[in-house]
């Protein structure tokens, strides 16, 4: 009996994971390629491995549009916060695309369908920052040098604005 439950749970868990994998492959693998210009890349590492901390040129404009308070400056802020309110909601913006597929800020998503040269992009507000797909690009250990030349982040974007960070590109749009 317990073995049956164990095997059933195994089948269920693997089905769920595989369903998500194929769902993402289908939804975003065929999505539109969008580049977002980077203001800064900072090499970092954590438990999950080495990654680039990405800062987007789009972020300040979204901040302004949302009237977000300045980023918390307290060193304790990441660990400790007794605030009881914070303006924070995830949402979508409408971005215009130029000939190279580079996104520029147009407006917050107000429900009007995007024009042909526009896409919806989902953003998250985390720790006072505007993020697109998490703001971190993971790469194989010891290859940070190569990704330091990054000028653009390459995303696949589904029609509903969901994002998948697929790579970084240098200033000649060459994938790194």
């Amino acid at each position: 009996m317990r073995s049956v439950v164990a095997i059933a749970a195994c089948v269920a868990a693997l089905s769920l994971v595989n369903h998500s994998i194929f769902g993402i492959e289908r939804k975003l693998g065929s999505g539109r390629v969008v580049l977002i210009e980077l203001a800064l890349v900072i090499p970092r590492s954590n438990l999950q491995g080495d990654y680039m901390d990405l800062r987007f040129n789009l972020a300040p404009e979204v901040r302004n549009a949302l009237n977000l308070a300045p980023i918390m400056t307290s060193k304790l802020a990441p660990f400790f916060s007794l605030q009881s309110e914070q303006p924070r909601r995830d949402g979508r913006i409408v971005a215009g695309l130029d000939a190279n597929g580079i996104a520029t800020y147009r407006r917050l998503d107000d429900g009007t369908p995007p024009a042909g040269d526009e896409v919806l992009l989902q953003y998250r507000v985390r720790e006072g920052q505007i993020r697109f797909a998490g703001n971190s690009f993971f790469f194989r250990e010891g290859t940070a040098e190569r990704f330091m030349q990054a000028r653009y982040a390459e995303f696949r974007v589904a029609p509903d604005g969901d994002l998948l960070l697929t790579g970084l590109r240098d200033r000649y749009f060459t994938p790194l």
């Binding site: 994971v17 999950q48 985390r126 697109f132 998948l164 960070l165």
Partner: peptide
């Protein structure tokens, strides 16, 4: 999964889904 598909999912989701999947 979270490294291959960088969708910006939060880290708590990883731990919560892990806990849910192994619960049985």
């Amino acid at each position: 999964f979270s490294r291959s598909y960088q969708t910006g999912a939060d880290i708590w989701e990883l731990f919560a889904i892990w806990a849910a999947l192994i619960a049985p």
